[in-house]
């Protein structure tokens, strides 16, 4: 079988918005004055085509088809004088307009002088900027972190009770706080993240936040070989 027979040119659309824009452009109409009947029927036939081609498509396409059909039927209703209802098409024009805006913004961003493509900076290994030049550091493993955590737990006064009624800080909020500290300072000593008189709960949340951030590779934990001080770096 010759390949030529099966030459299919297919535009793949990211979602129903993309398809809608494609149809509008192809019909050479103004997005502020969409011939809704035409576009709706084209949209529906595209969905049919996708079904026939056995292309999986998400329910998003059906939602859009339903919206278009609804607008189409609204357009058929007679408009009485004095009615101040806006053009039913606005329901689709507004999101389309915003989407097109974002598409052009994206293009413009892409054309900026990108760091590492168009413009370059002096690259230096992060290590050069660590405190105490020349000192050796090692990557900290999970257990070193747990040991350090244990030390902090040991520091809390024994009589400290966990207050279950008070507002508790979430791991997510804590991550955000730590990011703020790191954006400001770039790096922070592990123990400094824990304030001196924080509750056990706060300490645990902070520790979980750090583990989560390492997992997301937002930060890197390194330990000084002699002093054993663990430092957190913002990547």
């Amino acid at each position: 079988m010759s390949n030529e027979i099966y030459k299919i040119k297919m535009d793949v659309f990211e979602g129903p918005m993309d398809l809608l824009i494609h149809l509008i452009r192809k019909a050479e109409v103004d997005i502020y004055d969409i011939p809704i009947a035409l576009i709706t029927s084209k949209f529906l036939s595209y969905i049919d085509w996708m079904k026939k081609m056995n292309i999986d498509f998400a329910g998003d396409f059906l939602v859009m088809a339903a919206t278009l059909t609804q607008i189409k039927s609204k357009m058929l209703l007679p408009v009485h004088e004095g009615d101040e209802d806006e053009d039913p098409r606005m329901e689709i024009i507004r999101p389309l307009d915003e989407y097109l805006h974002m598409k052009s913004v994206a293009e413009q961003l892409y054309q900026r002088n990108l760091l590492g493509q168009d413009t370059f900076i002096r690259k230096s290994d992060n290590k050069d900027f660590l405190p105490h030049d020349g000192d050796e550091i090692i990557q900290v493993g999970l257990f070193d972190l747990i040991d350090a955590f244990q030390k902090i737990l040991d520091k809390i006064p024994a009589e400290h009770k966990i207050d279950l009624t008070s507002d508790r800080i979430s791991v997510q909020d804590r991550i955000s706080e730590i990011v703020n500290i790191l954006e400001e300072q770039g790096s922070v000593i592990f123990t400094e993240i824990f304030s001196d008189n924080c509750t056990k709960n706060e300490i645990i949340v902070t520790f979980l936040a750090i583990l989560e951030m390492i997992k997301l590779s937002l930060i890197q934990a390194v330990q000084h070989i002699q002093t054993g001080i663990i430092r957190i770096f913002y990547l």
């Binding site: 974002m102 598409k103 994206a106 293009e107 370059f120």
Partner: peptide, 18 residues
């Protein structure tokens, strides 16, 4: 320095812009 090419799909650029 042969930088790795900047690869971002238009979908990713759109999302980032939003």
């Amino acid at each position: 320095i042969q930088p790795s090419p900047f690869r971002m799909s238009s979908a990713a650029m759109e999302t980032l812009a939003i």
